[in-house]
Design a protein around this nucleic acid. Sequence first.
DNA 1: ACGGCTTCTACG
DNA 2: TCGTAGAAG
Length: 720
Amino acid sequence: MPVSRPESLGARVIAHVDMDCFYVQVEQRKQPHLSGQPTAVVQYNSWKGGGLIAVSYEARKYGVKRSMRGDEAKQVCPQIQLVKVPVSRGKADLCIYRNAGSEVVSILSRKGRCERASIDEVYLDLTDASEAMLAETPPESVEIIDEEALKSHILGLNEDGSNLKENVREWLRRSEADHRDKLLACGALIVAELRMQVLKETEFTCSAGIAHNKMLAKLASGMNKPAQQTVVPFVSVKGLLEPLPIKKMKQLGGKLGSSLQIDLGVNTVGELLQFSEEKLQERYGINTGTWLWNVARGICGEEVEGRLLPKSHGSGKTFPGPRALKTIASVEHWLNELCEELSERLHSDLDQNKRIARTLTLHARAFKFSDTDSHKKFPSKSCPLRYGATKIQEDALNLFQAGLREYLGSHRIKTQGSQHNGWGITGLSVSASKIVAIPSGTSSIMKYFHGGDQTNCSTKQVNHTVITEAAPLSPSGIESYSGLHPSEQYIEFRAEEMRIRYAMPSLDQQGSKRELCSREDTCEAMQSADDKDPNCSFSNQAQDVQEISALSSPGTENCLELNQNVPQIESHGGNKYLRHGMRPEELKRKNVKDKGSSSILRFFQSCNNSSSSPKQVQVRTTDENKAFSSTSFQSTSSYSELHEADVRKENLFGTSTLGQNGSRRDTWDYKIDEIDPSVVNELPPEIQEELRYLVRPQKRANIPKRGSSIAHYFLPTKNS
DNA sequence: ACGGCTTCTACG
DNA sequence: TCGTAGAAG
């Protein structure tokens, strides 16, 4: 549930940018003849024309609504153009929309901290940019105000509906305005410019709200659509909220909002004002209560997070009613499809953003009749994520079976022959979370601290590289996906080779091939898999998953204890991990569990890759920006250049034979002994774990805790 | 027995 | 920590 955050001291300028019927625009750009036509994007055309997920404004005039069926839409608007969502592996594939969203983010993130709130929504903190504009070129000093800015809606202005543009111009340039209004005026100009830029570079229109906090900005962005912007001056807040139906507020559109209506008789935000904070806390708990009290007053201290990339990736599908999956074989089939998609996206993320996900989670929905507790939820299960489609598939199936046993519970279901006995899977999804950035070449960063080339330091450039989103540069974005399979096979291949070459006991091949459970297509098979076979006795503990699926042999567990007392500090974006509670003790525990078998290979492979695709634009999140700016670290090198330098000059393995693209495969002979242990300590825990099999056990000095400077993370590193 | 699919946040 | 629920688009 929502939770309140303290408001910051000075007035902020926050914008919320919302793409107009985004999926439709994406399709219209792809097929220009659709532009200006009543259009809707529909998914699963098979049944009743499929379900609408986006509707153009032309079509809305005819009463076409989202949540209509394609057939219904045709009835109310016979000329409507219905465009199908791409399907791959038998399910909707949203990647073209995700990629289009990235294009937009890469533009919007140019003027300030930027948070990607959804596939088509972004929050911006324009406080600094607005303050700067006010100091340098305040609107009152500017003769010609941009046309797009003049089309702004200023809440509280023009209430008689007359003299619009002149009033707006006057409001924006008002010299007697208070500081807050002037800031918002600057924000409006900046947003207008950004929106024009988005239109110019992507052909997409968007709407925006400009206000002093996220809640109000979000509210405003939806007030004048499409392709318009709305400003919420401080003095208009009360008047805006008072008559506003409670359900219009973000977070109050569901049960909480209903409870306010039903239990408290509150129908508008204004009516919420009567309730004391204590009263609300009493009813809804301390956090939600305070949050509600603040909502009523338009107070929201939530920060713009500064995150351009998603925190997780998921792939799922529902199998409604009669289509429910009734056999393990069919579940396995669909899990394989879902995992393939997930794996592709993970590899894409790794390639483009140098991030790895560490947790795999399986969700399922199931029904079960002929039972008292048939409404029981199918439990979700998670385990450490191992890269590679087949590994993910394998792990996902194991998670599913663990969940299924728990779901079916103690009660023994009688099985008749090969007939299933009354259960069905109505939804499956797999997701990858706990995504962390791979350190971008610790030692090359070191170089910058130790007399890096100062001529390279240019703020302009930093903004450009650091904030630039990894936009899929081709509009379709598909190519980058399709290119992934070879790379994946390559990695798998290398993984096998490593096992052989170093004969690592923990990476025994047999383990991966072991059949975990019967894959028979019957419920019996699932039953028998239940308690008998120790290999299949899954609990919800991650370790158990590991024991079965992570290729470990008994002796290897001890190795993991080696770094028990070693605080794990991440060099890259370290402040983020600390802030989010990844304290050393916890990391230590995690390390014991997180031992993927191939992430290290992937990591090094990705180092190589970074120099191989010059078109790639890298992303750096604001967390990382903070880290760098806190030590006034500046560089003209792009992220990938840093990488490249690292690989070329200071190759972790000392072979340094990395040539141009083609010769790369031949340079994979690591000289294990030359791995600098202190560098190892700065890798993500998961990768560290794998390195420990290769590197001699090494005592390591404690790295200072969170020092004032990020330099602390780098300085202890030996610059071999 | 469904709108389908994703992502995020808060809570215990 | 993990697993669940709610919310949104």
